[in-house]
Amino acid sequence: MSLPPVTDAIPTWEDVARTHGRFLYTVAYRLTGNDDDAQDLVQDTLLRVRRGLAGYQPGNFEAWLARICTNVFLDDVRRRRRRPVGFLPDDPDRVMTPAPAADEASTMLPRDLELAVAGLPDEFRTAVVLCDVAGLSYEDIAIALGIPVGTVRSRIHRGRKILRAALTGMPR
């Protein structure tokens, strides 16, 4: 691998939006579960990049971006506790009825799974989204969430079991 250029600078927010806008929007959408909150999250993530608060280190760019996005999301959750859907976080095999589908037509989308992901408790959803949507390694997820790798492993596994229960419990 070649050495990075001398100016291996922090990517500008324009670079981020231009090159990784869809990735960022997708991660934001899966974390929040709806377009309104995803839009706010994308905006505030780009703003954090713009303000140079992101602590960029050359490496896995999308892992870095997903980490910022997740941190902004969790900061907001802690501040506003606005999760619209929730159920017992300590019982991964218990499945609640998903929130009603949004108005948008999405007949081609696997809506049941999308709702099940959106309905995961925050700690499981962040781990699953970072793993299966953002494609981060367990180590990168551990860094992003500030938790041990063993906890990442546990949360991803439990999150998937909740999703499995949600999907198999649905009439399909």
Binding site: T26, D35, A38, V42, V117, D132, V133, R164, L167
Partner: peptide, 18 residues
């Protein structure tokens, strides 16, 4: 097998563009 299917389905959810 079941979790592999769940994992694969999540990974193939459509991307969103805004």
């Amino acid at each position: 097998d079941e979790l592999a299917r769940v994992r694969q389905r999540v990974r193939t959810l459509p991307m969103r563009s805004g």
